[in-house]
Design a protein around this nucleic acid. Structure first.
Lengths: 243, 243
DNA sequence: ACAAAAGTGTTTAGTATACACCCATGC
DNA sequence: GCATGGGTGTATACTAAACACTTTTGT
């Protein structure tokens, strides 16, 4: 809070937003939920993409604002949510972005600090139909072009945050997998997150000696080769083992 | 940024501050830099302590605001600085704290989001004399009472951030040690950060096989027992080994 | 001589890595 | 019958942990 050292200097009039990096995994690659944005700049119409987010309301906590954004986007409550960084540099917002904001919110904006959140979502879960004029897409990490604001940077930082979080909490990544998954899916996920190949046998060994990953008697269906065994993550066993 | 889903709701008028958790290590325990705060609430004068921090100015980046606060406090520039979390819940500011803020800043406050920074400082470095009415103290972690705002929580989270950071970057903790240090100092530091005892021999072994910690031909002076060898951290060797 | 901390090796357990072949299934 | 991925074991290197006595120095 203020140290009262320099009351004479001008204080900023601020807006605060939350932006959500929602990650999914399709069995092959990581994908991010992006919204289509349309606007006008210098008489030219443009269309690009952005992360879901919003300005926070009066009396609304940061975490609650992020929950609200995700609820509006997906129709879900109780989504895992992790605040990972705040972005407040002046040049994170270009003139074009500022114009778009003022067109959209009908407010004068001086400066926007955004608090970035990370959320992992099973990609199979159906999304709510978004309000008219909004298009939501799962976009593969390699297919992301230049996004609005500094959202490319947010996504890069978010991936790093996933890694750190998964190091601390080994259960974290299971938010990205279906309830029943194959070893290949799990291994591919690790390869995508950590960016390096995992040895099949060593990976299999490491995973099977974790008691909270339990083998099912089921196998995958309708594949053009030997069907893989399915596994599930058992949260209760995991919790017990950790205390 | 705005999704424009609900323009009709009232947006918050916000203030944004930075707070700095500055940690030092005296060879025995971790200490935090705290400022004395005096104020009046309900006719009663009170005195307690708070973290250094300030509202950000117009056109000022978050990181720059944190740098400014630290510069005013310590007279130093080029201090390591790590943003670790944003705090924005409504109830983080009590009525008493809000009164104090309005007394001090002569501004109406509706809501304050603070971006918290972590900084490690050699405790031996002399601090600048703070502006009149400000008292700065290095307070041991165990001696911290109830601080203003949610500053006790910020400090707890900061310690966790130190651990995570040190896991990623083994050079980080050397910011807390004098340039020449003994094994005991280094070991005690690890014990304080990770909260558990380190075996003397194993620790010594692990450290001496790191080439970027170099043994000096000097020993400590004026101790009432066998004098310990001094070591220093060599940043150049460290950098080379990491690429 | 005694108090107080410095300094030093070995053994054992666990974890990480490297590596190649047969199996089941659908087409 | 062939293409595709599923499934399995062993040997080696490295890292982590447990554990106790002698040395140096100041008082």
């Amino acid at each position: 809070m203020s140290t009262s050292f320099r009351q004479d200097l001008q204080l900023a009039v601020n807006h605060i937003s939350v932006d959500c990096v929602v990650l999914g995994f399709d069995g092959e690659q990581l994908r991010v939920l992006l919204l289509k944005r349309v606007g006008e700049s210098g008489g030219q119409e443009f269309g690009d993409m952005k992360l879901p987010g919003d300005l926070i309301y009066t009396d609304e906590n940061l975490d609650d604002a992020a929950k609200r954004v995700l609820h509006e986007l997906t129709g879900m409550s109780n989504i895992n949510l992790l605040q990972f960084k705040a972005y407040g540099s002046k040049d994170r917002i270009t003139k074009k972005d500022m114009e778009w904001l003022e067109q959209t919110t009908h407010q004068h904006m001086e400066r926007i600090v955004t608090i970035a959140y990370l959320s992992l979502l099973r990609i199979s879960r159906p999304l709510a139909t978004p309000p008219a004029g909004n298009e939501v897409h799962w976009v593969g990490l390699d297919e992301i072009g230049t996004l609005a604001f500094d959202h490319n940077i947010l996504i890069r930082d978010a991936i790093e945050a996933v890694r750190h979080r998964a190091d601390i909490d080994p259960s974290y990544l299971f938010n990205l997998l279906p309830q029943k998954f194959t070893m290949l899916q799990l291994r591919t996920l690790y390869e995508r997150i950590y960016g390096k190949a995992q040895d099949v046998r060593n990976f299999h060994k490491k995973v099977t000696q974790l008691d909270y990953i339990v083998a099912l008697d089921e196998r995958e269906q309708g594949v053009a080769h030997r069907a893989a065994r399915l596994y599930r993550f058992d949260r209760k066993i995991f919790r017990r083992a950790r205390r």
